[in-house]
Each structure stands twice: as structure tokens, then as C-alpha cells.
Nucleic acid binder design. Structure first.
Lengths: 330, 330
DNA sequence: GTGAAAGCGCTAACAA
DNA sequence: TTGTTAGCGCTTTCAC
């Protein structure tokens, strides 16, 4: 920087002002040009670490997700990247599992690194990490899952309505005895989709609606829940699963019993993850715009950071039924 | 830090030495205890940014991958995380696509942030980003893909041998006219697997071995390549694809022609990605230990960083045939 | 509109 | 073994 100042014949502080778009207007244009040229000819670029130390900001934002291998999060991350890369922010992705202590530890580390904001894809319906963000006044936005009380802005899909649509689809195919494989109730997705199922069931006056709760969004938990469902309610003809992985687990459970989907039992999933068109049978499911979800979360976060906008907005995206071959007429 | 020094009744530099495990031995144990206690009671933690500015290091390592939604990279990332989290490093994942300029730009940004090392999952067989790392003497390790000349340590799978195993599997099922859907030749995986196919073909004295190159590891490119293969060599009975996504694309192409796998054509994939057991038909493929691949790459990188070990080692992991239902006797 | 000077929080040479 | 001092590279108040 001193070299640039020397070459341009100005003081280092003028170089700083000329190079920073936000303070550039303080410098007379011809000096700006001189500085820019000197910087370019020396290949000089401001040191982000020194800048962070001084300003307390970093133009980096962190994204916390529970599990990278869950393909659900891939399009969300892409959406976040798409939006934020164009705005000069870098995105740090951290896989933090479901351990709250580890999540807090990592959030703390990110804050120590002067991260400008956080996108949280991990929250439960009442999550200590939200307390952390509020306490430290770290700008943060929730994505995919929300808290019960709106303490931070969130972008989620309309989980309640989309599960109703899924159940109505089964109803229209003639199913009257329908079961539900619920997701973990501590997550808004598991909770709200279950509520959606119950609403639809009572509204459609279904008889014998059965529900089993999976303790995690995994294929094996889905299989276990499906087993319990079949044991207790052997006469169900359709199942609405809270998520595609649970639906695939249900496939596994059916196969193990020599039952066929959709001949014996129809199954509808949720999310329309990649490859759901090529599993066997191709899965009928609810498509959610996860990429758009990530994009909007990033936009909300940018506003929270740059406009110091601490207002709390919830964006709810609609889901759309994708009919494939896992559901059939009774 | 000044407060901690005050409370412990020592100078700030002593606090620094006591708090840093590497310099702690310079301080007499009872002073260390006093400092540690003072720090704890004040909730003090060293500022990583200030530390980075001073030391030029950050205890963060960056991972460059082309595409987060490719589930291939998820277990690699998990493996890297597993190893590195226990060693006090944080991992930054950056999705950089296939654009070399963008990759260099991001690597540059990470270096500016004093990143201690880089794991590269993106390299082509001769990649400018390796030049970059060498020029800047940034410790770096390649994973999954390698360069043709070993300029940096790499952890890859034995692509040549594993493709031979895949072809031999088809041979043993009676197939004699076998086609290959090759991956992009600029990547070592695409190149070496093709070489493996050719070796096996000449060794087994196959007649009419056909090859079509997919320009990217995507389902749609796989379908296009399969179409070309079927047009030119309508009598093939088996196909070895360079990767599972290409194999799924081949499924699509067969379905579009009303052909059946494995009745009309057997297909073997490569990687054993998640869900390959539940696609239709369940895919016969080569299983690669991607998690272990990530773990070993992380270990190599740690050694390169901490032991300043610039020696170049290549670790080659074996692959294993997983037989499912996409391959059958002729 | 630009220069001077202080300081963000830490570490490492040097001195004691 | 510990304290002193300088400085990593930048921004920002305060003068001018």
C-alpha cells in the first residue's frame, strides 16, 4: 500500500479512500485514476485480514447445514451462492451435524472471524443458536426450517399446505385409509407437515388415519416407521411421507415384506430431491423450489447486513405436486 | 488481552505465550494456570483475525469442488471434516464450477485470507490452479482427480484397474460386444477409466469395442452418449460407463427407445453414489471409498502444512465391484 | 480534498 | 522466564 502511495505520489490514506468504493467520493476523480493505475501496475490488492481487523467486517457469510450429503441442501447452497457471489460476498459452508454444542462452537468461531452474517439451515422449532445470534446481534436468516416464534427472518416452504395437497392427491385416487410417516417433531418441517396431514385427514373425514414418527430424516428411519405403520394398520392403502428419504425407506420396508408400490400401497414423498424420477417406482412427491429458497434467504440476509434491517420477515414458498408412479388408484 | 494480563498480574506477551500451546512451554506452569484462569473468568478468547494478521496463518483450510450437488463430493467432504476438525482446523468449502478463471479468483481470495492449505477436487490433467499453488507455495493436495504429472500429492482411486474390473465383470457374464461411455478426457477419471476400458478390451480380445465420450459427468450427457453408441453399434450387449450419473443417463436413453436393462443391455457404473441401490434397475457399479479418500487427503495436507513437507505422494485406493441388477448373463 | 497519526489485537525479536 | 517494543496492513478521526 505504501508502494502504491509512493507510485501515485499521494499518502497511504488517500490510497485507502480511492480504493474503497464507499469512500471513493472523498477523493478527486483524477487522483482516483492515478491510484487505481498505480495499484494495477503493482498488482496490489487490499488485504482483507487487515481490513477486517480494522473494520470488524469481512464480506464473508457463513452457512450452517446439518449434513452435506443430504442433496436437499445442494440447491439451497447454489441459490445462496448465485445471489451472494454477485454482491461481492464469499460463502463459507459449515457442516455441523445435529449436535447443538458443536453448532454453537462453530457459530462462535465464525463470529470470531468477523463473519458478516449467518444462514441457518439447522434450526429446531426453538433453537439456542437463534438466541446466540440475537445476543451477539449477528445478522441471520433461517432457511428451510423455521422456529415456532418468528425471532429471525426465514424462508421456508408452505409445509402445512403442501402436505394437505399430498393427502388430497391420495384421496382423489380413491384412498380412504391413509397413513403418515412424520419427520422429527422438533423441526418445523416434521411438525408442520404432520399438522397438514391431520388437517387434511379431518377435513376429508378420513377413517383410520395412522401416524408414525421417524426420529430422523433418513432412509432407515423411514423403513422402521413404515414397518410400525404396517404392523398397526394393515389395511392402509396410501402413505404420505414427510420427506423423500423417508419415502424411500418406506419402499425398502415394502420390499422386505414382498409388497409392491403402488399396487399394494401408494406412497407420496416430499421435496422432489434429485433422482426421484429414476428410483423404482418413480416417486410422486411435492416439489419445492430449494434453489429459490436459498436465493431469497441470501437476499434477506444481505438486506439485514447492509441496511441494518432487523425486521423479521417470513417468506413462504408454495410447493407443487409432481405425479409419478408411486401413487395409483385404489 | 490487556484485561487478562491485568487480572493475572503479568504482561500481555506472557498471556499470549501462555495461551498458545506451541509457546506455552516458555512460561512457568503456575503462571500458565493463573493466565488460563483469568482468561476463563473474563470469557476471553484470542482473536483469530489479529492473530492471522500477525502470523500469516489462520488454521483454516479451503476445499475447492466443482459442484456441491454432485453427491460424490459429500463423503469426501465428510472425510476431510472428520480428520481436520480433530486437529483444530476449520474447513471452508467453495463451489467453483468448471470455470478456471473463477477457480483462480477464489483460490486467490482464500490465500488473501491466509488460508493454510487447499484441497483441490477440481483439477484437470494439466491445471493452472496447480501452477498457482506452486507459485504461491500454498500447501495443496489433489483429491479424486489428479494431474498427469505428479506436481502435488494426490489421493485418487485406481481408475484404470477399477474400469478393468468392471469390463471383466461383463465379460464373465458372457458379453463380448461391449461399449464404453467415457467421461471428459481432460479429467484423470475420464482419461484413466477409458484407458482401463481399452486395456481390458485388448486383453480380453473383445470384438467391436465402441466408445463414446460424454462432455460432462451429467445424466443428460450420459443419455446423449448412449444414444450415439446405440446408433453406431446396435449389436452391443453391455456398456461400462465412466460414472454412475452417466450410467443413469444410459438408463434414460434405453427407456426412450423402449429397451430394457439388463434384458437387452447390461450397464455397469462407477462410484456407487448414494441411492444407486434403489434406482431402477439397481445399478451394478464400482464402489470407491470416498470418505477415506477425503480423510487421507486431509492427513496429507496437514503434514504438508505442519511439517513443511513438500514431497509429492500419491495414494491410490482400490475400488470394489458391487453387483446389483443392471448386469445379467447374455 | 488530502495528510498525519493513532490503533484494531495480536506475536516475536530482543533485552533484561 | 518474563517484559519491552515494534509492527502485521489497513481505516478513520482529526487537522490542515
Amino acid at each position: 500500500m505504501a508502494q502504491v502511495a509512493g507510485l501515485a505520489g499521494v499518502h497511504a490514506s488517500t490510497v485507502s479512500r480511492a480504493l474503497n468504493p464507499e469512500t471513493r467520493s472523498m477523493v478527486v476523480p483524477e487522483v482516483v485514476d492515478k491510484v487505481l493505475e498505480a495499484a494495477k501496475s503493482l498488482g496490489y490488492r487490499v488485504d482483507p485480514i487487515a481490513k477486517s481487523l480494522r473494520t470488524g467486517r469481512s464480506r464473508m457469510i457463513g452457512v450452517l447445514i446439518p449434513d452435506i450429503s443430504n442433496t436437499l441442501f445442494a440447491p439451497i447452497l447454489s441459490g445462496i451462492n448465485d445471489f451472494l457471489n454477485d454482491t461481492g460476498y464469499s460463502v463459507i459452508v459449515a457442516e455441523v451435524g445435529n449436535d447443538v454444542a458443536k453448532q454453537l462452537e462453530l457459530a462462535d468461531r465464525l463470529v470470531a472471524h468477523r463473519i458478516d452474517g449467518l444462514v441457518l439451515g439447522t434450526v429446531s422449532r426453538k433453537d439456542p443458536i437463534v438466541d446466540f445470534c440475537l445476543d451477539q446481534s449477528v445478522p441471520a436468516v433461517l432457511v428451510n426450517r423455521a422456529e415456532t416464534s418468528s425471532r429471525l427472518s426465514a424462508v421456508i416452504s408452505d409445509d402445512l399446505a403442501s402436505m394437505q395437497l399430498a393427502v388430497e392427491h391420495l384421496y382423489e385416487l380413491g384412498h380412504r385409509r391413509i397413513g403418515h410417516i412424520a419427520g422429527p417433531p422438533e423441526h418445523s418441517t416434521g411438525y408442520l407437515r404432520r399438522r397438514g396431514f391431520e388437517f387434511a385427514a379431518s377435513h376429508l373425514e378420513l377413517k383410520n388415519t395412522a401416524c408414525e414418527v421417524a426420529s430422523a430424516y433418513t432412509r432407515s428411519e423411514g423403513a422402521a416407521a413404515m414397518d410400525r405403520l404396517l404392523d398397526q394398520y394393515p389395511d392402509i392403502t396410501g402413505v404420505a411421507a414427510a420427506n423423500d428419504l423417508l419415502a424411500l425407506g418406506a419402499y425398502d420396508a415394502l420390499a422386505a415384506r414382498g409388497l409392491s408400490c403402488p399396487d399394494d400401497i401408494s406412497i407420496v414423498g416430499h421435496n422432489d430431491m434429485p433422482l426421484m424420477d429414476i428410483v423404482h417406482p418413480p416417486l410422486t412427491t411435492m416439489r419445492i423450489g430449494h434453489r429459490e429458497m436459498g436465493r431469497q434467504a441470501a437476499e434477506l440476509l444481505q438486506q439485514a447486513i447492509e441496511r441494518r434491517d432487523r425486521s423479521c420477515r417470513n417468506i413462504v414458498l408454495p410447493a407443487q405436486l409432481v405425479v409419478r408412479n408411486s401413487t395409483a388408484r385404489v
